[in-house]
Amino acid sequence: MALPDFVMYEEEYNKLKEVIERLKEESGSKIVFLVDKNGQQIAGAGELGNIDATSLASLTAGNVAATDGLAKLIGEKEFSLLFHEGERDNLHISIVGKRGILVVIFDNKATLGLVRLRVKKASQELEKIFDLIDEKAKKQVGDSENFESPFAEITEDDIDKLFGDI
């Protein structure tokens, strides 16, 4: 298979969350989201209640994937930044490491320059945390004799029950 499953534990989650909370504050933006390139939401900060985070994550990933395809078509490795300007709110989308996408939503209380600056700083920190997550996953694969997946004990019956009321 291409990539192993993406496994995230509480420790790394809290670290990621801390970085994006800080990014939100320091950049004066409304919402910051961290999603993975496959469209899964990893963490968010800000007024999340007003937004459909699942849709946002999948559309962002689609958008980045399409832009990535365009980059390759013209011989670029990637376009690491996407910016969408709206009447009220703006979207700043950037790629973090191999698997992350950072989405910042901000209005006219923040400036694009400041957002870009803070995103750059936060991206470096996030990348380090992603590396930690990867290292942990690799260690577990190497140590597979002692590591038991939390789902090792899932039975056919458990799976059947899941679908009972769908």
């Binding site: 291409a2 990539l3 499953d5 496994v7 995230m8 989650y13 496959n38």
Partner: peptide, 15 residues
Amino acid sequence: MAFINHAAKEINCKI
């Protein structure tokens, strides 16, 4: 590639 999130206690899979 499933996303197993121990912090949110969630498994996300794509079909």
